[in-house]
Design a protein around this nucleic acid. Structure first.
Lengths: 340, 340
DNA sequence: TTGTAGGCGTTATCAA
DNA sequence: TTGATAACGCCTACAA
């Protein structure tokens, strides 16, 4: 079926090892034979069997990636693009898996599939929700290739890349305060999500430091969807008719809030200022254009793969796993008309 | 490093072949030895090396997927989710690649990487743009595993799954006509895109059949972005101040158009009705909620993989490639306030 | 029911 | 500079 080294060797009148050397640009080979072999390779359309190579080399040059939620909002795809680009640029292939649910704790089948295929490393790009990180234990990690976690709460001994959600939320709230707002409500994502809690804490800390009200009546919980944002702001207005601004945990919920304001005939930002989080590509075209917090998600993906690459190289050199590190990127506020 | 069949065999006091039988649930084995072997497997934490297995079986149980544009709009991620789910459910692993540019004609490195890894099949999930399908020739395909194309113009001899964009656009325009609109402009995607041309043709055919104006002054070309939608409607209003509605080639461009209408103080749908295409999750929360065309993108992904699976099985049984087929899914109009 | 021998396609070792 | 031989981990054929 497929052309093999043997076929090429036979045609070129050399040994398989010689062909192998040509294929891998190894050591010195006489120009003459090299050319002869190369001609044979092209004539036969030879392509090396990476599986066989991996078997003997004990490395698959493949990285595994686990993700979730590509279809629901804009974040995961952007992270994935960064991951894929960096994987490709480093010469790896990418094995890809989605979890059916983000808080799935039944992750062993996924991990086993990766191990069975002898991937060189794993990028775990799932949000931290509830207990879904509990499987990460030293004894389990020992039987796995190096792993880098994306968007998980940093923990000693683990390699983690994440956005500093707290700092991002603080920027957003600080901006509202600077605009003269004093009654600042918040629509959080699900409190089971670490990222969501961080954004909430950023809201709370900033208000408290400024000596402003951060009481529970200013807080409602959404589920990231625009519908929950709409529901959320209705509830907020009921609890606290005096609010002058709202910080939403993501752009979708902010969008839902905008819609409710329109249908109530309220003016934005005149009556109420609204700020989101994420800076989805459309945010600048919402009505009014949405002030939000831009996250370097593609960069996060790239950095995660770079870290992983280092861990892999380190383990190969017998360094008993290079010191794991944590990288937190600080997002950037993007001011638009919904708040100014 | 890794536990092998040999290790298990030694511990259980049997031959490697016996262990292999247990691992693969093969033929009859005495309960006694089976249990003994299984105990050894668990004790050692044995995991089969799929690479070695693939080498001898001449099948990797891996499907390759090529995509593009995950970060720009909502379509590709939804297709990808369907692809991944179906791949997983059929017991394959998924090798994943993104192209840096969708109209890249330099696809040989990508294909080679797949062939080198002996993938069992390929899902080519790239939009058809310009000449980017020209590499698909019988002689090239012969040296490749089975391929299914997603969102490409159907061609004899190829397996293609796509949305019937023309029918979708026709539904949208027909709806506008039914609402009493008579001067219906269109903001198309890039005309280099097959999908975009199809939607344009749907617009044109429907208007012509209804005896309405479909002249070039009613047409502007965007690039799928919200910004181009904004630019597009400005240009349309200049060319044809008399338009009473606009069909946008996707939801992003429709969103851009909505924004311009707001800033001009025009009423939607009173002054101008607007219809999009895609039904992104947020479309129902745009202001006003956007009438648009829902595409079964996840379904497209699943169907593509199912077709691929059949092609693979057929080729294994020596059927000289099962008859390739084309599947066109008809999208569904979703009526919201922007047009009614 | 179980085991032995051989090979899948590649690379490393070590000798020529 | 080249080549024979032995792995890598698994599975199939054929025996026992």
């Amino acid at each position: 079926m497929h052309v093999t080294l043997q076929d090429v060797a036979k045609l070129a009148g050399v040994s398989t090892k010689t062909v192998s050397r040509v294929v891998n640009n190894q050591s010195e080979i006489s120009q003459a034979t090299r050319r002869r072999v190369q001609a044979a390779i092209e004539q036969l359309g030879y392509r090396p069997n990476i599986l066989a190579r991996s078997l003997v080399n004990k490395r698959s040059d493949t990285l595994a990636v686990v993700a979730w939620g590509l279809e629901f909002y804009g974040g995961p795809p952007r992270v994935l693009v960064g991951i894929e680009q960096q994987i490709f640029e480093l010469g790896y292939s990418m094995l890809f898996s989605l979890l059916p649910r983000p808080d799935d704790t039944n992750i062993n089948p996924v991990l086993d599939a990766f191990v069975d295929r002898r991937v060189d490393g794993i990028v775990w790009a799932l949000p931290e929700i509830g207990d879904n990180h509990k499987w990460v234990k030293p004894e389990r990690l020992k039987s796995l290739p190096p792993i880098v976690f994306v968007s998980m709460e940093p923990r000693p001994g683990l390699s983690v890349v994440a956005i500093d959600n707290r700092a991002g939320a603080a920027q957003a709230v600080r901006h509202l305060i600077d605009q003269g707002r004093r009654k600042i409500g918040v629509i959080t994502g699900p409190t089971t999500w670490w990222e969501s809690r961080e954004r909430y804490e950023g809201w709370k800390d900033t208000l408290q430091c400024a000596g402003l009200d951060a009481s529970p009546s200013l807080v409602v919980e959404g589920d990231w969807s625009a519908a929950s944002g709409a529901q959320g702001i209705r509830q907020l207005l009921e609890q606290r008719p005096d609010i002058d601004s709202v910080f939403a945990g993501n752009d979708q919920m902010a969008l839902g809030a905008l819609g409710v304001m329109h249908s109530l005939g309220r003016n934005i930002p005149g009556d109420i200022a609204i700020v989101g989080f994420d800076d989805v590509p459309e945010a600048g075209f919402y009505w009014p254009p949405l002030t939000t917090v831009y996250q370097q998600l593609t960069e996060i993906g790239r950095i995660a793969v770079q870290m992983l690459h280092k861990l892999i190289k380190a383990r190969r050199q017998g360094q008993d796993d290079a010191e794991p590190s944590t990288i937190l990127l600080t997002p950037q506020l993007v001011v638009r008309a919904s708040s100014a």
